[in-house]
Nucleic acid binder design. Structure first.
Lengths: 162, 162
DNA sequence: CGACTTAGTTGCTTGACGCAACTCAGTGTG
DNA sequence: CACACTGAGTTGCGTCAAGCAACTAAGTCG
């Protein structure tokens, strides 16, 4: 049992945070959503310590949020994918993203935009397309670099936009 | 500067987590939403160490998520209230709550139910009333103890339901 | 043959958290 | 008057998690 539990808490929020409330966990989920799938890719994108990344990937895999699939043999190499449970974290990520944009705005606008793949509309804080009104899910949306992203971080942006 | 930052991250999710991603922060916000306003009340409800609670309340106040107001003098005693910024975390909390209910269900059903004050309808994972369809905010909803709450924790439930 | 790649693991250090005890100002009780 | 109690913290100490750097393992490339 890891230490990040909340003993005595019966609420589902607490139960969720036991799993995804650990430092880096949600950012790992976000990056896997944005197309980062391999250990080194995630490590470089996040700047997280390798041992911590290793521990988180293991925990997230155990919790059925990520799935570890081999993509080659000799030597065995693995990629990480989101399960349905992992993809279902999308509304929470969107809520946090919009909260950040609204209350700690960067001077030039949001660093990352989320748009509805189908119609290109902006996505609201509730994960709803503001142009067509549909309630969206992780697969319906795409992240694009926003105006608040300064030039020195362009490479990170282009990776994230894939 | 506290350690819980994510250097090199430009994303708003990371910026949000710098503030509310610390252990206990979101649970404190949840409890203040549910009517806990005083130090000892929060400490007992959460079971968090007093020094940690003290540090979190200070940080959340600095970040303008909570507001500290005196409710008596001699000796000075304070209560904590949510600011608009704090109340705006509601969609994120609802998303996490619903994710927990969906993916790590307790045997007897959810331990806590969120309902629309006005019409009593259930609240969806997007913070939308399932009976009247309105997009809700923190003040429009109320938490009630759910069927998954076992008898031994009834006192916590009644407090949370206020 | 040595350098590079990928995916980790190991060892060490620092810092955050948990726990218990203490403070401080005032109130209530015998 | 002495003593216990309340509320809101603060202090000190030990432990566990996170950061950092170096190392391993299996295979590929030049």
């Amino acid at each position: 049992m890891l230490r990040n539990d909340y003993p005595g808490q019966i609420c589902s929020i607490a139960r969720s945070l036991e799993v995804v409330g650990e430092r880096w966990s949600l950012l790992i989920v976000r990056d896997v959503m944005n197309g980062h799938r391999r250990f080194d890719q995630l490590q470089k994108a996040l700047g997280v310590a390798r041992n911590v990344l290793s521990a988180r990937l293991q925990r997230l895999t155990e919790e059925d949020i990520l799935e570890r699939r081999p993509y080659q043999r000799n030597p065995e190499r693995y990629e990480y994918f989101l399960t349905e449970k992992g993809l279902d974290l999308w509304p929470a990520l969107i809520a946090l993203l919009n909260w950040g944009d609204r209350h700690s705005p960067s001077p030039d606008g949001p660093p990352m935009l989320i748009v509805h793949k189908e119609c290109g509309g902006a996505v609201s804080d509730r994960g709803i397309c503001e142009s067509c009104g549909k309630v969206l899910h992780a697969r319906d949306a795409r992240a694009l670099p926003g105006p608040g992203l300064d030039s020195e971080t362009e490479d990170a942006a282009t990776v994230a936009a894939r």
